[in-house]
């Protein structure tokens, strides 16, 4: 068992992390490239950058969220706080990257991590219930949306059981192995699922704003491509 755990949080973790980092890097580089090309092609390159920055930053402090569907929105905020704080600042996680994280890297007490983890679990449950319980959300939900939530729930639950064996139905080492394996899986999934918004978010409003800035020749080129030049309306 210990050998499997060491493998999962050693080489396998490093491979998964590499895939995650390179994948996200690829996502960022390709999107920035697309943005640069789109801006260069745009007939009008003047962008309302102030509005774009304000809207992007505005959603990081999600005041607006509570106007509509407050329970679902609160769960979303708590979930996001949980998935940022515990993975990044739990001492056990920081220890996975010896010599890579700087010495000043902050770690949170285990009791705090336990509390945040429980809140995250509750939030994840609320997100699943909110998604499947709301007619409008259910109507647009795809299997992958629920699957991602289930995988994340398993990841967090296994981690909490590993840290609190008294509440675990299985041995702590088993839970730890499952937690690490699912964690490795999530790292690989990050760049290829909607979780990629963790790095693409800062660019999305710029993209949609830039989307309205068409290339000056777009209409004529499309007409040429479709042999519709000079064709009456």
């Amino acid at each position: 068992m210990d050998g499997w755990i060491e493998f999962a949080r050693g080489p396998l973790f490093r491979i998964a992390l590499t895939v995650c980092v390179l994948g996200l890097g690829y996502r960022i580089v390709t999107l920035v490239g697309q943005i640069a090309v789109a801006w260069h092609r745009a007939g009008d390159r003047r962008l309302p950058l102030g509005d774009i920055v304000a809207a992007t930053a505005g959603w990081l402090v999600p005041r607006r969220l509570w106007h509509k569907r407050p329970v679902y929105s609160s769960a979303s905020v708590l979930f996001h706080v949980g998935v940022l704080v515990v993975p990044l600042f739990l001492a056990g996680h920081a220890a996975l990257l010896p010599g890579i994280l700087p010495v000043w890297w902050p770690v949170i007490p285990e009791a705090v991590a336990d509390g945040v983890t429980l809140v995250s679990l509750a939030a994840l449950l609320a997100l699943v219930v909110g998604r499947l319980g709301s007619a409008s959300s259910r109507a647009i939900t795809r299997a992958g949306d629920v699957l991602v939530l289930v995988i994340l729930f398993a990841l967090v639950l296994f981690g909490w059981w590993a840290a609190n064996p008294a509440f675990s139905p299985f041995a702590a080492r088993t839970m730890l192995l499952l937690h690490v394996l699912v964690g490795d899986l999530v790292l690989v999934l990050v760049p290829i699922t909607k979780i990629a918004h963790c790095v693409l978010y800062p660019f999305t409003r710029l993209v949609f704003q830039l989307g309205w800035h068409f290339p000056a020749e777009t209409g004529r080129h499309v007409a040429q491509a479709l042999n519709k030049e000079g064709e009456p309306v």
């Binding site: 996502r27 999107l31 697309q34 943005i35 090309v37 789109a38 092609r41 745009a42 509509k68 569907r69 679902y72 929105s73 979303s76 998604r131 709301s134 409008s136 959300s137 109507a139 647009i140 939900t141 795809r142 949306d145 909607k194 990629a196 918004h197 693409l200 978010y201 660019f203 999305t204 993209v207 949609f208 830039l210 989307g211 800035h213 068409f214 290339p215 020749e217 777009t218 080129h221 499309v222 491509a225």
Partner: peptide
């Protein structure tokens, strides 16, 4: 898509849409 900036828009929409229903 070949002669506009819409491919960037569609790519981004596909990648970040969370279908939250807001």
């Amino acid at each position: 898509l070949s002669h506009s900036n819409y491919a960037m828009v569609l790519d981004t929409a596909c990648r970040v849409t969370t279908r939250c229903g807001r």
